[in-house]
Computed example of a mutant assay.
Amino acid sequence: MDHTAPDRHWVRWHRQYDVEGSSLRRRLALVQRRVGQALDAQPAGEIRVLSMCAGQGRDLLGVLPGHPRRGDVRATLVELDADLAAEATHVARAAGLDGVRVVVGDAADAGLYNYVAPVHLALVCGVFGNLSDTDVQRTVEQLPRLCQPGATVIWTRHRRSPDLTPRVRGWFADAGFDEVGFDVEDGYLIGVGTHRLAGPALPYQPDAHLFDFVGDGGDGHR
């Protein structure tokens, strides 16, 4: 998750992943299930993956080591916090995932995905809860520039009132995506969307700025 370098808030915040029953841990399980399904569905050959605001990389790295397509994955994980990025790098190297590249940088900078774009799988998890509505829409509209035809996008957003997720799902439809599923869990405000690009991919624009990260992330994973 992105933050300013002196603030250790994000490192402490990511520890919620290890708390049994936490909303973040439950959201992670939903995301990882969808990641596994997306990898299963890929045809033979290279699988290109990007992860925005990747944190410790758990969305992908929690699935990939035991997945039969692990050797086909070429991924870029972008995370602004150097400590979290170092943890992701350590996990990837320890698992022998040589195709995983962790970049310390601003995930809003489309140029940081030049190693893998256009991708077969894009992870936009823990992002939309920390953007203005306008920037959420703009990011969705820009995703066809990062994706190959038929690519899968997995995203998250809390459903706290006023719930933006119905509008986000509509923006994906407007951008040429078909909805694969929208996962929620009773008693929690988490929402996990999975969409597949049915419309045409757009030209990659490495100079694009996707969004401005706002807030402290407190609502990002409810």
Score class of each variant (00 low, 15 high):
residue 183 D to P: 06
residue 23 S to C: 11
residue 168 V to A: 14
residue 214 V to L: 12
residue 36 G to A: 12
residue 92 A to W: 02
residue 17 Y to D: 13
residue 124 V to D: 12
residue 135 D to K: 04
residue 39 L to D: 00
residue 4 T to H: 15
residue 81 D to M: 04
residue 125 C to W: 02
residue 216 D to F: 03
residue 6 P to D: 07
residue 39 L to W: 00
residue 41 A to D: 00
residue 16 Q to D: 13
residue 161 S to A: 15
residue 28 L to R: 06
residue 92 A to F: 06
residue 196 R to T: 11
residue 174 D to C: 10
residue 73 V to H: 00
residue 40 D to S: 00
residue 147 C to S: 08
residue 172 F to H: 09
residue 214 V to H: 11
residue 77 L to W: 04
residue 148 Q to V: 10
residue 102 V to H: 03
residue 147 C to A: 12
residue 157 R to N: 15
residue 220 G to D: 07
residue 152 T to A: 01
residue 90 H to M: 11
residue 153 V to L: 06
residue 43 P to M: 01
residue 198 A to D: 12
residue 68 P to W: 00
residue 72 D to T: 00
residue 85 A to N: 04
residue 209 H to P: 06
residue 207 D to Y: 08
residue 101 R to F: 09
residue 131 L to M: 09
residue 222 R to H: 14
residue 29 A to F: 07
residue 215 G to S: 08
residue 186 D to R: 13
residue 195 H to D: 12
residue 96 G to K: 06
residue 188 Y to K: 08
residue 149 P to N: 08
residue 12 R to E: 15
residue 82 A to I: 06
residue 53 C to P: 03
residue 114 N to P: 02
residue 120 H to G: 03
residue 89 T to S: 14
residue 126 G to Q: 01
residue 67 H to E: 00
residue 21 G to L: 09
residue 145 R to E: 12
residue 66 G to I: 01
residue 150 G to D: 01
residue 204 Y to F: 12
residue 115 Y to S: 15
residue 130 N to C: 15
residue 50 L to F: 11
residue 102 V to T: 10
residue 63 V to F: 00
residue 109 D to T: 08
residue 39 L to P: 00
residue 63 V to E: 02
residue 114 N to H: 15
residue 184 V to K: 13
residue 83 D to T: 14
residue 197 L to T: 03
residue 163 D to W: 11
residue 202 L to V: 07
residue 220 G to R: 02
residue 45 G to F: 04
residue 77 L to G: 05
residue 120 H to M: 07
residue 182 F to V: 07
residue 62 G to F: 01
residue 85 A to H: 01
residue 208 A to L: 12
residue 180 V to N: 11
residue 31 V to D: 01
residue 61 L to N: 07
residue 152 T to R: 00
residue 156 T to N: 06
